[in-house]
Design a protein around this nucleic acid. Structure first.
Length: 382
RNA sequence: GCAGUAGUAGCUCAAAGGCAGAGCGCCGGAUUGUGGCUUCGGAGACGAGAGUUCAAUUCUCUCUUAUUGCC
C-alpha cells in the first residue's frame, strides 16, 4: 500500500496521510510548485528544497527540450536538476489547453505541434508512459484529455471517453514497463478525472477510473476559474467544490486525492476540508513575478503606489528569507525594474507562504481544529 | 540681426478644415496540471493671441519658445 491515512479531522473530511514513493515518504496534504522545465522559474532546486517537499514537471515539454535522452543519462529528473524532494511529471495532456501546441487527438493519442521546430508530433498514451518512465519522476500522471469551457457537453463527454480510454491504456502499459522493478522502486501512477462542471460526466468518469486501481486519483480541468466559468468567481468556487465532492464520493477513500491546478490559498484550504491531499499550481510563482504577493492578511499588489515608501517586510508575520532581509520598497523596485532578483525574492516568499499554509493546516487537522483555522483564514485572508 | 524648421499626453512621435491616435511612462484589475510573449482597463495633450471660415489643433498673420544655417 503506497498511501496510509494517519489522521482524520473530526469535523471535516480533511486528513493527514503518508504517501510512499521510491524517493521516500511525503506527508499529505502537500502543495507542489510547477517546475515545468525542470525548474520553478527563478528558484533553483536547492532553494526549492527548503520550501517545498515536492514539485511537478512536464514530461511532454521536457521531451521537446532538452529531450528525454539527456535526462535518461542522469537516470532521471531528480539527478538532472539535483532536487532531493518528491517529483511528479504531468503527461502533457494539459497542453491541449494551449492552441499553440495542440492540434488534435484520437483514441491512440495526441497530435502536438513542436513549437521549436514546427513539426507535427504524434504521441500515444503508451509512448507517454515510456517517456514519463524515462524521466523517472516518483509519480507519473496518465495522459488525459482536458476539455475547455467553450466545449459543449457533447465535446466534454468525448473528452471523458478519451480520458478513460487512455487511462486504461496508460495503466496497462505502465504496469508492463514497471513489471520487473522492485516494489519499493516502482514509479507510482495517478489517473485524472474529467467531466467539466457536469455532475453526471464527473460521476461517470471517476467511477470508470476507480475500477482500474491507480495509486492516486486526480481531479482535472476545474482550477482555471476564469477560463472555465467566466468572471463569476463565487459560482466557480461552488462548481469546483461540487466536482470535488462527486470525485471523492466515487474514488477510493484510501488513495490520495490530487486537485490539479489549485493554487488559490483559500480555495485550497476548502479543498482540504473536502478531503483533497495534494495540489499543484503555477499561481504562487506566476503571481509573485507579476507583483501579487500572498501574506497572512491577504494578497497584496506590491506594485501599487502605496508601497513605494513602505520599509516594512512583505509580510511582517513571515520569517522567510525575503521578509527577514528586504523591504516592500526594495522588492517593489526590483519588480518594477524587471530585475530577476525581484522575481526570485517574491517567488520565494509566495512559495514559503504556501508551505506555511499547509503546515498550519496539518497542525490543525491533527488537533481537530481545522474548521476554525479555515474560518479564521477566510476572515483574515482578504 | 537674417533665413529655415519645429512647437500635439510626463516622454518620443502620428493623423486630420468637422469624435485628436499610438508606443513608452503613470494609476488600477486579472493571473490557478507555466512553450514563449503576461494580459485587460483607466487617467492624461493641440505654446499664446488675432484673422479667414458655418466650423481652425489644422489655413493666414503676429508674438513666443526650441533648434539649424548664414552674417
Amino acid at each position: 500500500m503506497s498511501f496510509t491515512i494517519t489522521h482524520k479531522d473530526k469535523h471535516t473530511k480533511a486528513r493527514i496521510g503518508i504517501l510512499k514513493t521510491k524517493s521516500g515518504d511525503i506527508e499529505t496534504p502537500f502543495f507542489m510548485p510547477v517546475a515545468t522545465k525542470a525548474t520553478a522559474k527563478y528558484i533553483n532546486s536547492k532553494k526549492l528544497q527548503e520550501i517545498t517537499p515536492a514539485i511537478i514537471s512536464n514530461a511532454f515539454l521536457l521531451s521537446l527540450r532538452p529531450g528525454v535522452e539527456i535526462i535518461r543519462r542522469f537516470k532521471g529528473i531528480k539527478k538532472f536538476m539535483n532536487y532531493k524532494g518528491i517529483t511528479f511529471t504531468d503527461s502533457g495532456g494539459f497542453q491541449m489547453y494551449s492552441d499553440y501546441l495542440y492540434i488534435t487527438s484520437n483514441e491512440k493519442g495526441v497530435y502536438f505541434r513542436n513549437p521549436i521546430s514546427g513539426e507535427k508530433i504524434f504521441m500515444t498514451s503508451g509512448e507517454n508512459m515510456k517517456l514519463q518512465q524515462d524521466i523517472n519522476a516518483d509519480v507519473a500522471m496518465c495522459l488525459d484529455s482536458m476539455p475547455i469551457y467553450k466545449n459543449s457537453k457533447e465535446e466534454i463527454k468525448k473528452a471523458v471517453e478519451l480520458t478513460i480510454n487512455w487511462a486504461e491504456k496508460c495503466k496497462k502499459e505502465h504496469d508492463r514497463l514497471q513489471e520487473n522493478i522492485m516494489k519499493n522502486k516502482k514509479q507510482l501512477l495517478f489517473c485524472i478525472s474529467q467531466g467539466g462542471i457536469y455532475k453526471d460526466l464527473r460521476e461517470y468518469c471517476i467511477k470508470e477510473l476507480a475500477k482500474l486501481n491507480f495509486d492516486g486519483y486526480a481531479i482535472g480541468g476545474i482550477a482555471l476559474p476564469e477560463a472555465l466559468y467566466g468572471k463569476e468567481m463565487e459560482k466557480a468556487k461552488k462548481l469546483e467544490q461540487q466536482s470535488i465532492k462527486i470525485h471523492k464520493k466515487f474514488s477510493p477513500e484510501n488513495k490520495p486525492c490530487y486537485l490539479m491546478g489549485e493554487g488559490n490559498p483559500i480555495w485550497l484550504l476548502e479543498a482540504i476540508a473536502l478531503g483533497v491531499d495534494c495540489f499543484d499550481s503555477r499561481y504562487p510563482t506566476q503571481s509573485a513575478r507579476r507583483g501579487t504577493i500572498f501574506t497572512k492578511n491577504g494578497k497584496i499588489k506590491i506594485l501599487n503606489k502605496k508601497y513605494e515608501y513602505d520599509k516594512t517586510p512583505i509580510d511582517k508575520k513571515c520569517d522567510c528569507f525575503t521578509c527577514k532581509n528586504y523591504s516592500r520598497t526594495y522588492v517593489r523596485f526590483l519588480l518594477r525594474e524587471n530585475e530577476p532578483v525581484g522575481k526570485e525574492l517574491a517567488s520565494y516568499h509566495n512559495l514559503y507562504f504556501m508551505k506555511w499554509l499547509i503546515e498550519e493546516a496539518k497542525k490543525h487537522i491533527k488537533k481537530n481544529t481545522f474548521i476554525e483555522f479555515l474560518e479564521k483564514m477566510k476572515k483574515t485572508y482578504k
